[in-house]
Every structure is written in structure tokens, then in C-alpha cells.
Amino acid sequence: MADAAAAGGGAGHDEDVTRRDFLYIATGAFGVVGTAIALWPFVDSMNPSADTLALSTIEVDISGVEEGQSITVKWRGKPVFIRRRTQDEISEAESVALTELPDPQADEDRVQKAEWLIMVGVCTHLGCIPLGQKASDKKGDFGGWFCPCHGSHYDTSGRIRKGPAPENLPVPQYTFLDDTTVRIG
């Protein structure tokens, strides 16, 4: 008799607990999801705003750039390197075997016109600006660009050859509007 009562009471109690557990977990889960959703605007407010995003394009006059010279222009807050390469630099860039490259990419895939090398001048390691734009700059072991921050060497196609940077200097989207004007972006 006492046993049965205890068992009955126990069972009833178990049932209660189960229902409560369900409500408890459901409420908890709802709360967590709700909080996560409520948090998103805070996180996203730190992403680039609409005015920052408004994609800018620039048009650059390259008529004054002689063979073997480079210019730097600012695009989206970053420097873009425009180099009019010499024949030597082009043939050197084209002759490298892809197997020698940490980030294999043929020179022809990096240029529209072999003479003009256009790329974002931001080291793919940690974002410094490599040297090599001026004639007097240190150009590294491969005659292209050299990043002084942690010693990355880029070749005459802007490809990474030595040092901590993992990737080649990125090539932005660009169009030649005519022989002397290029639009970047």
C-alpha cells in the first residue's frame, strides 16, 4: 500500500518533471536564438557602412609612364601599382616554371597587356606596402618588389617567391578604356 502510493507519487512526479523540462529547454532555446538574432545588428554595425561600400572606380591616365617606370594610385584606400614592364622583366616573368611558385599562376593570367602590370600593392602577408615602385628601392631577390616588414620577395609579375606571404599580389578588376587610360574597379 505504502509502496504503491510511493510508486504512484513517483510516476506522477516524473511526468511533471518531463513537462517542465520541455518547457524549460524550449524557453531556453528560444531565448538563446532570440538573443543571437538581437545581437546581429550590433555585430553587423561594425561592418563597412553603405557609404564605405559605395564602390568607387578610378580612371588613371597612364600616358606619362615610360618603360621601366611605375606609378602608385589610391583605390579604395589602398595603393594600386601600375608598372610598365621592360621586355626583360616580361620574359623573366613568363619563363618561370609554375612548379617553382608557392602560389602558381602564369604571368599571362595576371595581365591584360604584357607590358602593363596592374595590381593591388598590399603585401598578402600582413598588409604592408612592398618596396619596388621607385628605381632606387630595394626590389628583392627576384627583381620585382620587396616587402620590408617581414621580408617577402615578389617577382616581376608580382608573384610571391620567398618569405612569409602566402599569395601573389592581387590583380584588381580593370579595363583599358583606350591606349592611355585605364579604369580600376
Binding site: 561594425m46 563597412p48 557602412s49 579604395r76
Partner: peptide
């Protein structure tokens, strides 16, 4: 990184 910067480089944001 873009999120940390609030842009495409270290800038005003």
C-alpha cells in the same frame, strides 16, 4: 579583417 576595420583598409571607422 573587413569587419575589424569597418572598411577595406585601416581608415576612419
Amino acid at each position: 579583417v573587413t569587419w575589424l576595420w569597418g572598411g577595406f583598409a585601416v581608415e576612419n571607422p
